[in-house]
Design a protein around this nucleic acid. Structure first.
Lengths: 239, 239
DNA sequence: AAATCGTACTTGTCTAGACAAGCACAGTCA
DNA sequence: TGACTGTGCTTGTCTAGACAAGTACGATTT
């Protein structure tokens, strides 16, 4: 037993660390049967609940697979999955130590088209709030935010000063987030977007379309257009 | 107590469901103090370990925050984060019920440039494997895969028939995945990529650059170029 | 007034044992 | 041969109690 690295580690954490280290060293190839809870109980001299916790956490992390009646198996790791976090742009820019400012190009009430009404759970022609805001990082346009909001969720939306707070931030305050769908694609901007972002009509853009729902009521649909040359989504995966 | 929806639900799951439902209804605004474990023990007539499990799982899901000595609080939900899974392209296409085939345009050994050697943990001029493969979905080019592989991790890489198995799949078999970094951006393809994908030189592409590491040894660096009009990354967030 | 201490409450973790449920496999019976 | 049954393994879940550790707050002392 060579697990005496961290003497003050909790017992469940010791078991977990031991298994994780051996998994990484390739002790159990993907799909191989790992020691049972009973064996680990004897090996570490702890109770079964403690071993169970270690294994359950490894299962949540995707490192092992457990089957009742069969045993615990080393996971295949046949996928690269990582947590993609879409944060509030203002926060993201500030955290880089840069300055953020927003230009509000449009903020008004409109009548919903059929397609939009569908997405926001309204009827065609119902009132919706529409804002068009360009966000700058160090005075360079970074994002064109074209957003429609369900007035029922945020009646005061149009009175907010969006040069001081972002729509994302305001909406999260007003309506706690309970569901979101997004899609990411590369495409050319519309003529208007190109002009607002100060880029060419045929420059590639990274476009995120996001729809959020709170308590089963659609809140907002947003189209976020970023100049491809200035925006990068990054991520990391580590078990 | 109105939690008798699922009579056969395990006790810990009942507690969890109860709290989740009330959180969603806004019973506790973000940051509010929620019932303590002791209170829930009395309310549900279960042991503390059972309540603890329910709360711990809600914590892992990001719905509550717990502070030792203070209590359990409703989480802020001030972030949209979801698991972005990058799967093997072959599997992804097949799961859509479409056919996949690959054209191998290049598969040879080369000498590493300085930049490449850096990324693969080799010295400049060392041997690297280089493949250039175009993947088709229903005979339409979907991805141009430009990949460099560390020969130490996969000595037989160049002998694999990549019309039958994808490099991603083969490498995951040979070297279990332990770390990956990726970036996603929108940009124009190179002239060669445009030709291989059958698109215009100025059409927007979604480009994923991925670097994977196994057991602290870099395995491969890949540049995956997708025509923007034919590829979409989608995701969902739901607590 | 400021620093210290004690107390009550919280979550974090562990134990030893229990029963249920799922799976594989050997043995039995028709 | 084929269907059934028992047995021994596994994980899934629960219990009642215990001690540790962190926080807030009031009471006491300096």
């Amino acid at each position: 037993m060579v697990t005496a690295r961290q003497p003050n580690l909790a017992p469940y954490a010791k078991v977990k660390q031991y298994l994780k280290a051996r998994l990484q060293k390739g002790r159990w190839p993907p799909g191989a049967l790992m020691p049972s809870e009973a064996e680990l109980v004897v090996q570490f001299g702890v109770s079964r609940m403690t071993v169970n916790r270690a294994l359950k956490e490894l299962q949540v992390e995707g490192l092992v697979e457990r089957v009742q009646g069969l045993g615990t198996f080393a996971a295949q790791l046949h996928r690269v999955s990582s947590t993609l976090t879409i944060r509030d742009l203002h926060t993201e820019i500030e955290s880089r130590g840069h300055t953020h400012h927003a230009e509000v190009h449009l903020a008004r009430q409109e009548a919903a088209t059929a397609a939009l009404a569908e997405k926001l759970g309204l009827t065609k022609g119902a009132a919706v709030f529409h804002t068009l805001i360009v966000h700058h990082e160090n005075n360079v346009p970074l994002q064109c935010e074209d957003r429609y909001v369900n007035p029922a969720c945020a009646p005061d939306y149009l009175n907010v000063d969006f040069t001081k707070t972002t729509p994302t931030h305001y909406l999260l305050e007003v309506a706690p987030l309970w569901e979101a769908q997004y899609s990411i694609e590369a495409a050319a901007p519309t003529a208007r977007e190109a002009k607002l972002l100060g880029i060419g009509r045929h420059d590639a853009c990274l476009i995120i379309v996001r729809r959020t729902v709170s308590r089963n009521v659609p809140i907002t649909v947003a189209r976020l257009v970023h100049p491809g040359s200035r925006y990068l989504l990054e991520g990391q995966f580590k078990p």
